[in-house]
């Protein structure tokens, strides 16, 4: 298997925890501000809005494959970076948290991409941004925000487990 440098794994684990903490803050702020505190109640709306979820199938412990796991991790981070961008303007109070979260996700995507390049497993061209959902109302944007943030939390949880596995 391709060796992953310890410093890369330690820094990546720390980046995941950093993003998780900020993502949690955003979820709390969305709940406190708009009383949208239960993402599971927004599943139907999420489906109609087309809020995507990034797959991490190659990072699951049953089917762990380093090369495609890193690719899924990178693509997923780009997806959530785009989703967070689509939420811009959701409200002034959340703007700072949203900006910082977006920067952290972007920086983590760079960390993954550069490691893929170092391992020689990076695709020739960086994947392009997926088309992002559009929101017809402030409520849809807020609900989309809760869903995207919640999906990101799940995504980070799986990523963390995979990275811990690589670190063992």
């Amino acid at each position: 298997p391709l060796p992953l440098p310890k410093s890369f794994l330690l820094k990546s684990l720390e980046q995941v925890r950093k993003i998780q903490a900020k993502d949690e803050v955003l979820l709390e702020q969305l709940c406190a501000t708009y009383k949208l505190c239960h993402p599971e109640e927004l599943a139907l709306l999420g489906h109609s809005l087309g809020i995507p979820q990034a797959p991490l199938s190659s990072c699951s412990s049953q089917a762990l494959q380093l090369r495609s796991c890193l690719r899924q991790l990178h693509s997923g981070l780009l997806l959530y970076k785009g989703l967070l961008q689509a939420l811009a303007g959701i409200s002034p109070e959340l703007a700072l948290t949203l900006d910082m979260l977006q920067l952290d996700v972007t920086n983590f995507a760079t960390t993954i991409w550069q490691q893929m390049e170092n391992l020689g497993v990076a695709p020739a061209v960086q994947p392009t941004q997926n088309t992002m959902p559009t929101f017809a109302s402030a409520f849809q944007r807020r609900a989309g925000g809760v869903l995207a943030t919640s999906h990101l939390q799940d995504f980070l949880g799986m990523a963390y487990r995979a990275l811990r596995h690589f670190a063992q």
Binding site: K11, S12, E14, Q15, D99, M100, L103, D104, N107, F108, T110, T111, Q114
Partner: peptide
């Protein structure tokens, strides 16, 4: 400022 920084690089 943060927006000019690439953390972990």
């Amino acid at each position: 400022p943060r927006k000019h920084l690439l953390l972990y690089q």
